[in-house]
Design a protein around this nucleic acid. Structure first.
Lengths: 250, 250
DNA sequence: GCGATCAGCGTACATGCTACGCAGATCAGG
DNA sequence: CCTGATCTGCGTAGCATGTACGCTGATCGC
Protein backbone atom coordinates (compact mmCIF):
# COMPACT_ATOMS: atom_id res chain seq x y z
CA UNK A 1 0.00 0.00 0.00
CA UNK A 2 1.29 3.41 -0.92
CA UNK A 3 0.46 6.83 0.37
CA UNK A 4 -2.12 8.99 -1.23
CA UNK A 5 -0.03 10.54 -3.97
CA UNK A 6 0.59 14.26 -3.66
CA UNK A 7 2.80 16.72 -5.38
CA UNK A 8 5.09 18.95 -3.41
CA UNK A 9 5.60 16.59 -0.49
CA UNK A 10 9.23 15.91 -1.19
CA UNK A 11 12.25 18.15 -1.35
CA UNK A 12 10.99 20.99 -3.50
CA UNK A 13 14.48 22.31 -4.18
CA UNK A 14 15.64 19.00 -5.57
CA UNK A 15 12.53 18.58 -7.72
CA UNK A 16 12.91 22.07 -9.12
CA UNK A 17 16.62 21.64 -9.74
CA UNK A 18 15.98 18.56 -11.86
CA UNK A 19 12.97 20.01 -13.68
CA UNK A 20 14.69 23.18 -14.70
CA UNK A 21 17.82 21.19 -15.49
CA UNK A 22 20.26 23.01 -13.31
CA UNK A 23 22.68 20.45 -14.60
CA UNK A 24 24.79 19.31 -11.68
CA UNK A 25 28.53 19.52 -12.34
CA UNK A 26 29.05 17.26 -15.30
CA UNK A 27 31.41 14.97 -13.50
CA UNK A 28 33.34 12.55 -15.57
CA UNK A 29 34.95 10.42 -12.91
CA UNK A 30 33.61 6.98 -12.14
CA UNK A 31 31.50 4.61 -14.21
CA UNK A 32 29.10 5.92 -16.84
CA UNK A 33 25.49 6.11 -15.69
CA UNK A 34 23.24 3.50 -17.25
CA UNK A 35 20.05 5.43 -16.62
CA UNK A 36 18.81 9.00 -16.77
CA UNK A 37 16.17 10.95 -14.95
CA UNK A 38 14.19 11.21 -18.14
CA UNK A 39 14.21 7.46 -18.65
CA UNK A 40 13.10 6.81 -15.09
CA UNK A 41 10.30 9.35 -15.24
CA UNK A 42 9.02 8.00 -18.54
CA UNK A 43 9.10 4.46 -17.22
CA UNK A 44 7.18 5.53 -14.13
CA UNK A 45 4.55 7.18 -16.30
CA UNK A 46 4.30 4.05 -18.41
CA UNK A 47 3.77 1.93 -15.32
CA UNK A 48 1.09 4.25 -13.96
CA UNK A 49 -0.64 4.40 -17.34
CA UNK A 50 -0.64 0.63 -17.60
CA UNK A 51 -1.38 -0.49 -14.06
CA UNK A 52 -2.41 2.55 -12.07
CA UNK A 53 -0.89 4.65 -9.33
CA UNK A 54 -1.02 1.88 -6.74
CA UNK A 55 1.18 -0.27 -8.94
CA UNK A 56 3.75 2.51 -9.13
CA UNK A 57 6.50 1.50 -6.74
CA UNK A 58 10.22 2.06 -6.80
CA UNK A 59 10.71 -1.70 -7.01
CA UNK A 60 8.41 -1.91 -10.00
CA UNK A 61 10.05 0.93 -11.91
CA UNK A 62 13.48 -0.53 -11.22
CA UNK A 63 12.48 -4.01 -12.30
CA UNK A 64 10.92 -2.54 -15.43
CA UNK A 65 14.31 -1.01 -16.20
CA UNK A 66 16.21 -4.15 -15.26
CA UNK A 67 18.16 -2.54 -12.43
CA UNK A 68 18.18 -2.82 -8.66
CA UNK A 69 15.67 -0.77 -6.71
CA UNK A 70 18.22 1.37 -4.97
CA UNK A 71 19.86 2.36 -8.22
CA UNK A 72 17.00 4.74 -8.89
CA UNK A 73 18.06 6.79 -5.90
CA UNK A 74 21.21 7.83 -7.72
CA UNK A 75 19.03 9.82 -10.11
CA UNK A 76 15.94 10.78 -8.14
CA UNK A 77 15.83 11.82 -4.48
CA UNK A 78 12.78 9.72 -3.71
CA UNK A 79 9.31 8.73 -4.78
CA UNK A 80 7.78 12.10 -3.90
CA UNK A 81 10.14 13.94 -6.19
CA UNK A 82 9.66 11.35 -8.91
CA UNK A 83 5.96 12.16 -8.84
CA UNK A 84 6.68 15.87 -9.18
CA UNK A 85 8.77 15.10 -12.23
CA UNK A 86 6.05 12.91 -13.72
CA UNK A 87 3.54 15.72 -13.33
CA UNK A 88 5.59 18.26 -15.20
CA UNK A 89 6.50 15.70 -17.83
CA UNK A 90 2.91 14.90 -18.78
CA UNK A 91 2.23 18.61 -19.12
CA UNK A 92 4.72 18.85 -21.96
CA UNK A 93 2.90 20.50 -24.85
CA UNK A 94 2.73 18.33 -27.96
CA UNK A 95 3.46 21.24 -30.27
CA UNK A 96 4.46 24.85 -29.95
CA UNK A 97 1.35 26.79 -29.22
CA UNK A 98 1.42 30.45 -28.31
CA UNK A 99 -2.26 31.02 -27.58
CA UNK A 100 -5.32 29.05 -26.54
CA UNK A 101 -7.74 31.06 -28.68
CA UNK A 102 -8.82 34.50 -29.79
CA UNK A 103 -11.63 35.18 -27.34
CA UNK A 104 -11.83 34.05 -23.74
CA UNK A 105 -14.62 31.54 -24.38
CA UNK A 106 -12.93 29.51 -27.05
CA UNK A 107 -9.69 29.73 -25.09
CA UNK A 108 -11.27 28.33 -21.96
CA UNK A 109 -12.97 25.66 -24.00
CA UNK A 110 -9.67 24.72 -25.61
CA UNK A 111 -8.02 24.58 -22.22
CA UNK A 112 -10.76 22.36 -20.82
CA UNK A 113 -10.61 19.99 -23.78
CA UNK A 114 -6.85 19.82 -23.54
CA UNK A 115 -7.07 18.91 -19.87
CA UNK A 116 -9.75 16.37 -20.70
CA UNK A 117 -7.43 14.67 -23.14
CA UNK A 118 -4.60 14.75 -20.63
CA UNK A 119 -6.70 13.31 -17.82
CA UNK A 120 -8.17 10.55 -19.91
CA UNK A 121 -4.87 9.55 -21.50
CA UNK A 122 -3.19 9.37 -18.11
CA UNK A 123 -6.03 7.96 -16.11
CA UNK A 124 -4.17 8.15 -12.81
CA UNK A 125 -3.57 11.87 -13.12
CA UNK A 126 -6.89 13.15 -11.72
CA UNK A 127 -6.17 11.32 -8.48
CA UNK A 128 -2.90 13.06 -7.75
CA UNK A 129 -3.41 15.78 -5.21
CA UNK A 130 -1.95 18.89 -6.78
CA UNK A 131 -2.92 21.39 -4.12
CA UNK A 132 0.78 22.10 -3.65
CA UNK A 133 2.02 22.10 -7.21
CA UNK A 134 5.72 22.21 -7.93
CA UNK A 135 5.98 24.56 -10.87
CA UNK A 136 8.12 23.09 -13.57
CA UNK A 137 8.63 24.72 -16.96
CA UNK A 138 5.69 22.94 -18.57
CA UNK A 139 3.24 23.67 -15.79
CA UNK A 140 4.26 27.32 -15.83
CA UNK A 141 3.86 27.57 -19.58
CA UNK A 142 0.33 26.13 -19.42
CA UNK A 143 -0.63 28.49 -16.65
CA UNK A 144 0.82 31.45 -18.52
CA UNK A 145 -1.32 30.66 -21.57
CA UNK A 146 -4.47 30.39 -19.48
CA UNK A 147 -3.79 33.68 -17.74
CA UNK A 148 -3.22 35.45 -21.04
CA UNK A 149 -6.52 34.14 -22.39
CA UNK A 150 -8.38 35.84 -19.55
CA UNK A 151 -6.53 39.15 -19.93
CA UNK A 152 -9.33 41.21 -21.51
CA UNK A 153 -12.22 40.00 -19.38
CA UNK A 154 -12.18 42.53 -16.57
CA UNK A 155 -11.42 39.86 -14.01
CA UNK A 156 -9.04 40.68 -11.17
CA UNK A 157 -5.87 38.69 -10.79
CA UNK A 158 -7.43 36.66 -8.00
CA UNK A 159 -10.47 35.98 -10.14
CA UNK A 160 -8.41 34.86 -13.10
CA UNK A 161 -6.62 32.38 -10.90
CA UNK A 162 -9.94 31.23 -9.48
CA UNK A 163 -11.46 30.74 -12.92
CA UNK A 164 -8.56 28.60 -14.06
CA UNK A 165 -8.65 26.57 -10.85
CA UNK A 166 -12.34 25.93 -11.10
CA UNK A 167 -12.27 24.82 -14.70
CA UNK A 168 -9.38 22.51 -13.96
CA UNK A 169 -11.23 21.19 -10.95
CA UNK A 170 -14.30 20.51 -13.06
CA UNK A 171 -12.40 18.62 -15.73
CA UNK A 172 -10.56 16.66 -13.09
CA UNK A 173 -13.81 15.68 -11.43
CA UNK A 174 -15.40 14.67 -14.70
CA UNK A 175 -12.35 12.64 -15.66
CA UNK A 176 -12.42 10.89 -12.32
CA UNK A 177 -16.01 9.88 -12.89
CA UNK A 178 -15.13 8.49 -16.29
CA UNK A 179 -11.87 6.78 -15.38
CA UNK A 180 -13.06 5.34 -12.11
CA UNK A 181 -14.91 2.29 -13.41
CA UNK A 182 -11.98 1.23 -15.58
CA UNK A 183 -9.42 1.65 -12.83
CA UNK A 184 -11.59 0.13 -10.13
CA UNK A 185 -12.21 -2.95 -12.20
CA UNK A 186 -8.50 -3.35 -12.90
CA UNK A 187 -7.75 -2.97 -9.21
CA UNK A 188 -10.47 -5.05 -7.66
CA UNK A 189 -11.59 -7.29 -10.48
CA UNK A 190 -15.15 -6.13 -9.85
CA UNK A 191 -16.90 -4.57 -12.83
CA UNK A 192 -19.12 -1.56 -12.37
CA UNK A 193 -22.12 -3.65 -13.22
CA UNK A 194 -21.22 -6.20 -10.57
CA UNK A 195 -20.62 -3.44 -8.05
CA UNK A 196 -24.06 -1.93 -8.52
CA UNK A 197 -25.71 -5.31 -8.77
CA UNK A 198 -24.34 -6.05 -5.32
CA UNK A 199 -26.12 -3.02 -3.95
CA UNK A 200 -29.33 -3.51 -5.86
CA UNK A 201 -31.15 -5.78 -3.39
CA UNK A 202 -30.55 -3.42 -0.50
CA UNK A 203 -31.50 -0.37 -2.51
CA UNK A 204 -34.67 -1.98 -3.72
CA UNK A 205 -35.59 -2.95 -0.21
CA UNK A 206 -34.98 0.64 0.86
CA UNK A 207 -37.19 1.97 -1.92
CA UNK A 208 -39.99 -0.38 -1.04
CA UNK A 209 -40.25 1.44 2.28
CA UNK A 210 -41.49 4.42 0.29
CA UNK A 211 -38.96 6.74 1.89
CA UNK A 212 -37.20 7.48 -1.40
CA UNK A 213 -39.87 8.30 -3.99
CA UNK A 214 -37.61 10.36 -6.24
CA UNK A 215 -35.00 7.64 -6.46
CA UNK A 216 -37.69 5.10 -7.08
CA UNK A 217 -39.01 7.11 -10.00
CA UNK A 218 -35.58 7.41 -11.58
CA UNK A 219 -35.17 5.70 -14.92
CA UNK A 220 -32.85 2.73 -15.22
CA UNK A 221 -30.31 4.68 -17.21
CA UNK A 222 -30.07 7.67 -14.89
CA UNK A 223 -26.62 6.58 -13.69
CA UNK A 224 -25.48 5.10 -16.98
CA UNK A 225 -24.51 8.39 -18.52
CA UNK A 226 -22.06 8.35 -21.43
CA UNK A 227 -18.88 10.06 -20.20
CA UNK A 228 -18.60 12.49 -23.08
CA UNK A 229 -22.15 13.71 -22.65
CA UNK A 230 -21.49 14.40 -19.01
CA UNK A 231 -18.38 16.38 -19.87
CA UNK A 232 -20.11 18.38 -22.59
CA UNK A 233 -23.07 19.16 -20.37
CA UNK A 234 -20.83 20.44 -17.60
CA UNK A 235 -18.62 22.40 -19.94
CA UNK A 236 -21.53 24.26 -21.52
CA UNK A 237 -22.96 24.98 -18.09
CA UNK A 238 -19.63 26.30 -16.88
CA UNK A 239 -18.95 28.48 -19.92
CA UNK A 240 -22.47 29.91 -19.86
CA UNK A 241 -22.02 30.77 -16.21
CA UNK A 242 -18.68 32.36 -16.91
CA UNK A 243 -20.30 34.43 -19.63
CA UNK A 244 -22.65 35.89 -17.06
CA UNK A 245 -19.70 36.82 -14.84
CA UNK A 246 -17.82 38.45 -17.72
CA UNK A 247 -20.88 40.53 -18.71
CA UNK A 248 -21.20 41.70 -15.11
CA UNK A 249 -17.77 43.34 -15.32
CA UNK A 250 -18.09 44.62 -18.90
CA UNK B 1 1.94 4.39 4.30
CA UNK B 2 -1.66 3.63 3.50
CA UNK B 3 -3.54 3.28 0.27
CA UNK B 4 -5.32 6.12 -1.34
CA UNK B 5 -8.61 5.92 0.52
CA UNK B 6 -11.62 4.90 -1.55
CA UNK B 7 -15.13 3.91 -0.76
CA UNK B 8 -16.57 0.70 -2.11
CA UNK B 9 -13.30 -1.23 -2.25
CA UNK B 10 -14.18 -3.65 0.49
CA UNK B 11 -16.95 -6.19 0.83
CA UNK B 12 -19.98 -4.18 -0.19
CA UNK B 13 -22.41 -6.70 1.26
CA UNK B 14 -20.83 -6.50 4.69
CA UNK B 15 -20.71 -2.71 4.64
CA UNK B 16 -24.35 -2.52 3.64
CA UNK B 17 -25.41 -5.08 6.22
CA UNK B 18 -23.86 -3.03 9.01
CA UNK B 19 -25.09 0.32 7.70
CA UNK B 20 -28.66 -0.76 7.35
CA UNK B 21 -28.37 -2.61 10.66
CA UNK B 22 -29.35 -6.04 9.51
CA UNK B 23 -28.71 -6.96 13.12
CA UNK B 24 -26.89 -10.27 13.15
CA UNK B 25 -28.46 -12.88 15.44
CA UNK B 26 -28.35 -11.34 18.90
CA UNK B 27 -26.29 -14.12 20.37
CA UNK B 28 -25.94 -14.26 24.10
CA UNK B 29 -23.26 -16.90 24.51
CA UNK B 30 -19.71 -15.92 25.27
CA UNK B 31 -18.27 -12.80 26.83
CA UNK B 32 -20.06 -9.46 26.44
CA UNK B 33 -18.56 -7.27 23.70
CA UNK B 34 -16.62 -4.30 25.02
CA UNK B 35 -16.96 -2.29 21.83
CA UNK B 36 -19.54 -1.54 19.16
CA UNK B 37 -19.40 -0.66 15.49
CA UNK B 38 -20.71 2.78 16.30
CA UNK B 39 -17.97 3.41 18.83
CA UNK B 40 -15.27 2.27 16.44
CA UNK B 41 -16.59 4.38 13.57
CA UNK B 42 -16.86 7.48 15.72
CA UNK B 43 -13.36 6.97 17.04
CA UNK B 44 -12.05 6.58 13.51
CA UNK B 45 -13.74 9.82 12.50
CA UNK B 46 -12.25 11.55 15.51
CA UNK B 47 -8.78 10.35 14.58
CA UNK B 48 -9.16 11.49 10.97
CA UNK B 49 -10.53 14.86 12.05
CA UNK B 50 -7.67 15.37 14.47
CA UNK B 51 -4.69 14.00 12.55
CA UNK B 52 -5.79 13.36 9.00
CA UNK B 53 -6.48 10.31 6.86
CA UNK B 54 -2.86 9.18 6.83
CA UNK B 55 -2.95 8.92 10.62
CA UNK B 56 -6.01 6.70 10.42
CA UNK B 57 -4.76 3.17 10.96
CA UNK B 58 -6.31 0.17 12.60
CA UNK B 59 -3.52 0.26 15.18
CA UNK B 60 -4.27 3.89 15.98
CA UNK B 61 -8.02 3.41 16.35
CA UNK B 62 -7.47 0.39 18.56
CA UNK B 63 -4.96 2.15 20.76
CA UNK B 64 -7.32 5.11 21.02
CA UNK B 65 -9.92 2.69 22.35
CA UNK B 66 -7.45 0.92 24.62
CA UNK B 67 -7.81 -2.45 22.94
CA UNK B 68 -5.60 -4.65 20.77
CA UNK B 69 -5.52 -4.01 17.05
CA UNK B 70 -7.08 -7.29 16.06
CA UNK B 71 -10.04 -6.78 18.36
CA UNK B 72 -11.49 -4.31 15.87
CA UNK B 73 -11.89 -7.11 13.36
CA UNK B 74 -14.57 -8.68 15.53
CA UNK B 75 -16.81 -5.71 14.69
CA UNK B 76 -15.66 -4.49 11.30
CA UNK B 77 -14.56 -6.64 8.36
CA UNK B 78 -11.59 -4.44 7.54
CA UNK B 79 -10.33 -0.95 6.96
CA UNK B 80 -12.12 -0.54 3.63
CA UNK B 81 -15.50 -1.26 5.18
CA UNK B 82 -14.69 0.98 8.14
CA UNK B 83 -14.22 3.82 5.69
CA UNK B 84 -17.59 3.10 4.08
CA UNK B 85 -19.18 3.29 7.51
CA UNK B 86 -17.42 6.56 8.30
CA UNK B 87 -18.73 8.08 5.09
CA UNK B 88 -22.34 7.30 5.81
CA UNK B 89 -21.92 8.36 9.42
CA UNK B 90 -20.72 11.88 8.61
CA UNK B 91 -23.69 12.28 6.29
CA UNK B 92 -26.07 11.92 9.20
CA UNK B 93 -28.37 14.96 9.03
CA UNK B 94 -28.19 17.16 12.13
CA UNK B 95 -31.94 17.67 12.20
CA UNK B 96 -34.96 16.33 10.41
CA UNK B 97 -35.23 18.22 7.18
CA UNK B 98 -37.72 17.32 4.52
CA UNK B 99 -36.72 19.78 1.81
CA UNK B 100 -33.70 21.78 0.73
CA UNK B 101 -35.69 24.83 -0.37
CA UNK B 102 -38.70 26.05 -2.28
CA UNK B 103 -37.13 26.78 -5.65
CA UNK B 104 -34.29 24.93 -7.31
CA UNK B 105 -31.81 27.77 -6.89
CA UNK B 106 -32.08 28.18 -3.15
CA UNK B 107 -32.20 24.40 -2.82
CA UNK B 108 -28.98 23.93 -4.74
CA UNK B 109 -27.39 26.74 -2.79
CA UNK B 110 -28.46 25.12 0.46
CA UNK B 111 -27.06 21.82 -0.68
CA UNK B 112 -23.75 23.39 -1.66
CA UNK B 113 -23.42 25.23 1.64
CA UNK B 114 -24.27 22.09 3.56
CA UNK B 115 -21.57 20.19 1.72
CA UNK B 116 -19.18 23.05 2.33
CA UNK B 117 -19.77 22.78 6.05
CA UNK B 118 -19.36 19.02 5.93
CA UNK B 119 -16.14 19.16 3.95
CA UNK B 120 -14.57 21.84 6.10
CA UNK B 121 -15.57 20.23 9.38
CA UNK B 122 -14.15 16.89 8.29
CA UNK B 123 -11.16 18.13 6.40
CA UNK B 124 -10.13 14.67 5.24
CA UNK B 125 -13.44 14.02 3.53
CA UNK B 126 -12.76 15.74 0.19
CA UNK B 127 -9.81 13.41 -0.35
CA UNK B 128 -11.78 10.20 -0.13
CA UNK B 129 -12.50 8.86 -3.57
CA UNK B 130 -16.23 8.34 -3.67
CA UNK B 131 -16.55 7.31 -7.30
CA UNK B 132 -17.96 3.99 -6.07
CA UNK B 133 -20.17 5.09 -3.22
CA UNK B 134 -21.73 2.56 -0.92
CA UNK B 135 -25.21 3.87 -0.37
CA UNK B 136 -26.09 3.88 3.28
CA UNK B 137 -29.31 5.31 4.67
CA UNK B 138 -27.88 8.78 5.19
CA UNK B 139 -26.28 9.05 1.78
CA UNK B 140 -29.52 7.94 0.16
CA UNK B 141 -31.56 10.45 2.11
CA UNK B 142 -29.29 13.31 1.04
CA UNK B 143 -29.47 12.23 -2.56
CA UNK B 144 -33.23 11.91 -2.42
CA UNK B 145 -33.56 15.49 -1.18
CA UNK B 146 -31.33 16.81 -3.94
CA UNK B 147 -33.26 14.95 -6.61
CA UNK B 148 -36.56 16.29 -5.32
CA UNK B 149 -35.24 19.84 -5.42
CA UNK B 150 -34.59 19.53 -9.16
CA UNK B 151 -37.97 17.98 -9.92
CA UNK B 152 -39.61 20.95 -11.61
CA UNK B 153 -36.70 22.12 -13.72
CA UNK B 154 -37.27 20.21 -16.91
CA UNK B 155 -34.02 18.33 -16.54
CA UNK B 156 -33.91 14.68 -17.54
CA UNK B 157 -33.04 12.08 -14.94
CA UNK B 158 -29.51 11.86 -16.27
CA UNK B 159 -29.17 15.63 -16.14
CA UNK B 160 -30.44 15.82 -12.58
CA UNK B 161 -27.81 13.30 -11.53
CA UNK B 162 -25.18 15.22 -13.46
CA UNK B 163 -26.13 18.53 -11.84
CA UNK B 164 -25.86 17.07 -8.36
CA UNK B 165 -22.54 15.41 -9.18
CA UNK B 166 -21.08 18.59 -10.58
CA UNK B 167 -22.07 20.76 -7.66
CA UNK B 168 -20.69 18.20 -5.25
CA UNK B 169 -17.53 18.02 -7.29
CA UNK B 170 -17.17 21.79 -7.19
CA UNK B 171 -17.62 22.02 -3.44
CA UNK B 172 -15.22 19.17 -2.94
CA UNK B 173 -12.61 20.86 -5.08
CA UNK B 174 -13.04 24.18 -3.31
CA UNK B 175 -12.80 22.49 0.07
CA UNK B 176 -9.65 20.73 -0.99
CA UNK B 177 -8.07 24.04 -1.92
CA UNK B 178 -9.00 25.46 1.45
CA UNK B 179 -8.11 22.48 3.60
CA UNK B 180 -4.89 21.63 1.82
CA UNK B 181 -2.58 24.17 3.46
CA UNK B 182 -3.72 23.20 6.95
CA UNK B 183 -3.37 19.48 6.35
CA UNK B 184 -0.11 19.76 4.45
CA UNK B 185 1.46 21.76 7.23
CA UNK B 186 0.33 19.24 9.83
CA UNK B 187 1.72 16.43 7.73
CA UNK B 188 5.00 17.87 6.60
CA UNK B 189 5.66 20.66 9.06
CA UNK B 190 6.11 23.01 6.13
CA UNK B 191 3.83 26.04 6.12
CA UNK B 192 2.31 27.26 2.91
CA UNK B 193 4.42 30.37 3.10
CA UNK B 194 7.57 28.31 3.44
CA UNK B 195 6.50 26.09 0.58
CA UNK B 196 6.05 28.97 -1.82
CA UNK B 197 9.12 30.74 -0.54
CA UNK B 198 11.10 27.66 -1.51
CA UNK B 199 9.90 28.01 -5.08
CA UNK B 200 10.25 31.77 -5.28
CA UNK B 201 13.89 31.96 -6.40
CA UNK B 202 13.32 29.56 -9.27
CA UNK B 203 10.11 31.25 -10.33
CA UNK B 204 11.71 34.65 -10.27
CA UNK B 205 14.58 33.39 -12.35
CA UNK B 206 12.07 31.95 -14.81
CA UNK B 207 10.22 35.22 -15.02
CA UNK B 208 13.40 37.18 -15.64
CA UNK B 209 13.72 35.26 -18.90
CA UNK B 210 10.66 37.15 -20.08
CA UNK B 211 8.89 33.97 -21.11
CA UNK B 212 6.07 34.45 -18.61
CA UNK B 213 4.85 38.05 -18.88
CA UNK B 214 1.37 37.37 -17.52
CA UNK B 215 2.65 35.64 -14.42
CA UNK B 216 5.19 38.39 -13.96
CA UNK B 217 2.44 40.99 -14.00
CA UNK B 218 0.38 39.16 -11.42
CA UNK B 219 -0.10 40.95 -8.14
CA UNK B 220 1.45 39.54 -5.00
CA UNK B 221 -1.90 38.52 -3.60
CA UNK B 222 -3.18 36.68 -6.66
CA UNK B 223 -2.69 33.30 -4.98
CA UNK B 224 -3.56 34.46 -1.47
CA UNK B 225 -7.29 34.29 -1.95
CA UNK B 226 -9.50 34.06 1.12
CA UNK B 227 -11.18 30.63 1.01
CA UNK B 228 -14.69 31.89 1.49
CA UNK B 229 -14.39 34.37 -1.35
CA UNK B 230 -13.26 31.62 -3.65
CA UNK B 231 -16.20 29.45 -2.67
CA UNK B 232 -18.71 32.29 -3.08
CA UNK B 233 -17.30 33.27 -6.44
CA UNK B 234 -17.54 29.73 -7.73
CA UNK B 235 -20.99 29.18 -6.30
CA UNK B 236 -22.43 32.27 -7.95
CA UNK B 237 -20.82 31.32 -11.22
CA UNK B 238 -22.25 27.81 -11.04
CA UNK B 239 -25.76 28.87 -10.10
CA UNK B 240 -25.84 31.53 -12.81
CA UNK B 241 -24.76 28.95 -15.33
CA UNK B 242 -27.38 26.52 -14.10
CA UNK B 243 -29.97 29.25 -14.49
CA UNK B 244 -29.10 29.48 -18.17
CA UNK B 245 -29.56 25.73 -18.53
CA UNK B 246 -32.93 25.79 -16.77
CA UNK B 247 -34.19 28.63 -18.95
CA UNK B 248 -33.17 26.67 -22.04
CA UNK B 249 -35.61 23.91 -21.09
CA UNK B 250 -38.40 26.17 -19.80
C1' DG C 1 49.46 2.41 -13.44
C1' DC C 2 47.47 4.57 -9.22
C1' DG C 3 43.94 6.44 -6.58
C1' DA C 4 39.95 9.39 -6.23
C1' DT C 5 35.41 9.09 -7.54
C1' DC C 6 31.04 7.43 -8.23
C1' DA C 7 27.39 3.85 -10.16
C1' DG C 8 24.92 -0.20 -8.70
C1' DC C 9 22.65 -2.44 -5.23
C1' DG C 10 22.05 -6.07 -1.07
C1' DT C 11 20.53 -5.83 3.42
C1' DA C 12 17.75 -4.26 7.02
C1' DC C 13 14.20 -1.58 9.30
C1' DA C 14 9.92 0.99 9.98
C1' DT C 15 4.98 1.12 9.14
C1' DG C 16 0.84 -0.66 7.18
C1' DC C 17 -3.20 -4.42 6.87
C1' DT C 18 -4.79 -8.69 8.35
C1' DA C 19 -5.05 -14.38 8.44
C1' DC C 20 -4.68 -17.57 11.84
C1' DG C 21 -5.39 -19.72 15.99
C1' DC C 22 -5.18 -19.81 21.09
C1' DA C 23 -6.59 -18.50 25.98
C1' DG C 24 -10.02 -17.52 28.77
C1' DA C 25 -14.56 -15.42 29.84
C1' DT C 26 -19.41 -16.35 29.64
C1' DC C 27 -23.74 -18.63 29.87
C1' DA C 28 -27.36 -22.57 28.73
C1' DG C 29 -28.56 -26.86 30.30
C1' DG C 30 -28.37 -30.30 33.60
C1' DC D 1 -22.64 -25.85 40.91
C1' DC D 2 -20.55 -28.18 36.92
C1' DT D 3 -19.81 -28.96 31.91
C1' DG D 4 -19.21 -27.76 27.35
C1' DA D 5 -20.39 -24.83 23.55
C1' DT D 6 -19.53 -20.40 22.16
C1' DC D 7 -17.54 -16.12 21.36
C1' DT D 8 -14.29 -12.10 22.62
C1' DG D 9 -9.73 -10.30 22.82
C1' DC D 10 -5.52 -10.38 20.82
C1' DG D 11 -0.35 -12.12 20.06
C1' DT D 12 2.17 -13.63 16.30
C1' DA D 13 3.62 -13.67 11.84
C1' DG D 14 3.53 -12.76 6.80
C1' DC D 15 2.85 -9.77 3.12
C1' DA D 16 3.63 -5.10 1.06
C1' DT D 17 5.88 -0.43 0.81
C1' DG D 18 9.90 3.41 0.82
C1' DT D 19 14.53 4.12 1.79
C1' DA D 20 19.17 4.68 4.97
C1' DC D 21 23.52 2.68 5.05
C1' DG D 22 27.61 1.06 3.37
C1' DC D 23 30.13 -2.18 0.35
C1' DT D 24 32.01 -3.63 -4.35
C1' DG D 25 33.97 -2.67 -8.36
C1' DA D 26 34.11 0.12 -12.73
C1' DT D 27 36.01 4.27 -14.59
C1' DC D 28 39.06 8.02 -15.77
C1' DG D 29 42.38 12.12 -14.57
C1' DC D 30 46.83 12.46 -13.58
Amino acid sequence: MSDQQRSGEGDVHRSLAIMWAFAGGTATRGPKPQLSVRLIVDTAIRVADADGLEALSMRRVASELGVGTMSLYRYVPGKAELLDLMLDRVNEPPEDCTSLGDDWRTAMETMARGLWTLYTEHKWLPWVDQSRPVLGPNAMASFELALAALAGTGFSDQERVAVISLIDSFVQGAARMVNAPVLAERRTGVTDQEFWAAQAPVMEAAMRTGAFPEMQGLSETAFAQPPEEFFEFGLTWLLDGLDVQVRNRG
